[in-house]
């Protein structure tokens, strides 16, 4: 059954859309990530214009992260003060990201930037995850157990001025890295159509030393808030949010995530991180391919719409 998407001005099979949402939802439930970094490329490769794919997935990420954020909130797994600092700076990042998005679209370099962005971020994060998880798996095999808590050592980040105490997380840290992380994730997320949870979680853990019980919930709340703001910004600035597309993806992914989460409980943490690292790296390699290999058609065309977007 074909579904006409009013903003994409394009028909796609509704079962294909729900299926894509379900598959990505399964993986996001399995690994505890938003799944935007998989869904946006999938949509682009199935013919949806990149601007519509990015903006619509942004609202899908809101849906995918809401139930998780709510359940962490009920369990007290969110540092609201830290989340507030991250969100306020993230909103500024999102504004800059959406503005950059429109500018790049008008100059014809949006697809290139999205490809490069995915390559750089997924490539580096995927490699780090793979190395870290690979070591953990080897250690597990050799009978060594990983330490339950990160050593309470201080790094260079903790030497910066204007420190703020975040009681829930039990950290006392300068506002600058907090603002930089929040704004950075907001910028990258709005530009690439990803929640950025898989970048935010390691940043909070390794740079700010946020404890494990707070990190996932706080990161999920940041993703919900920033992606909600970004959806509105995309709707106003480029009018590329397709609610019908987003809704079919949401339905698929919300259902798929439940099965993924159940499957995830059968695997150990480092095994999951190893698989996620491989998946992230595979997407990065797919983008590297599209950048490095001579395109089948060096020519492309687009409609120039008034207001700089095209």
């Amino acid at each position: 059954m074909q579904l006409y998407l009013p903003i994409a001005e394009f028909s796609l099979n509704i079962f294909l859309l729900i299926g894509m949402g379900g598959a990505v939802g399964f993986l996001s439930g399995l690994f505890g990530v938003g799944g935007g970094f998989l869904l946006t490329p999938l949509l682009i490769f199935s013919g949806i214009p990149a601007p519509v794919a990015v903006a619509s997935v942004t609202s899908q990420v809101v849906a995918a992260s809401t139930s998780g954020a709510l359940s962490y909130y009920r369990r007290g797994g969110i540092d609201l003060k830290l989340a507030l600092f991250l969100i306020i700076s993230g909103v500024f990042g999102a504004f800059a990201g959406v503005w950059t998005f429109g500018y790049l679209r008008s100059t014809g370099q949006l697809e290139l930037t999205i490809s490069l962005g995915y390559l750089v971020f997924l490539g580096s994060i995927g490699s780090i995850m793979l190395v870290e998880a690979g070591r953990a798996v080897l250690k597990y095999r050799s009978g060594e157990r990983p330490p339950a808590h990160l050593p309470h050592q201080h790094n260079w980040v903790h030497g910066l001025p204007f420190r703020v105490r975040f009681k829930r997380s039990g950290i006392y840290v300068s506002v600058f890295p907090v603002i930089a992380i929040g704004a950075g994730i907001g910028f990258i997320g709005s530009l690439l159509g990803i929640g950025g949870g898989f970048i935010l979680v390691p940043a909070l853990v390794y740079l700010l030393r946020v404890p494990g019980v707070m990190v996932i919930g706080t990161s999920l709340l940041h993703v919900v808030a920033i992606m909600a703001v970004t959806t509105i910004l995309h709707a106003v600035a480029s009018q590329t949010v397709d609610v019908l597309l987003a809704l079919t993806l949401m339905v698929g992914s919300v259902a798929g995530a439940q099965f993924g989460a159940a499957a995830g409980r059968k695997l150990r943490g480092e095994q999951l991180r190893l698989l996620l690292g491989l998946l992230v790296l595979a997407v990065a390699i797919r983008f590297a391919f599209s950048l490095l290999v001579a395109p089948a058609d060096p020519f492309s065309m687009a409609i120039v719409t008034p207001g700089g977007a095209g």
Binding site: V62, T66, L70, V224, A228, T231, A246
Partner: peptide, 12 residues
């Protein structure tokens, strides 16, 4: 669009 997303996520 955001409200639909929040509602769908909550409902799920």
């Amino acid at each position: 669009a955001v409200l639909i997303a929040l509602f769908t996520g909550w409902l799920g």
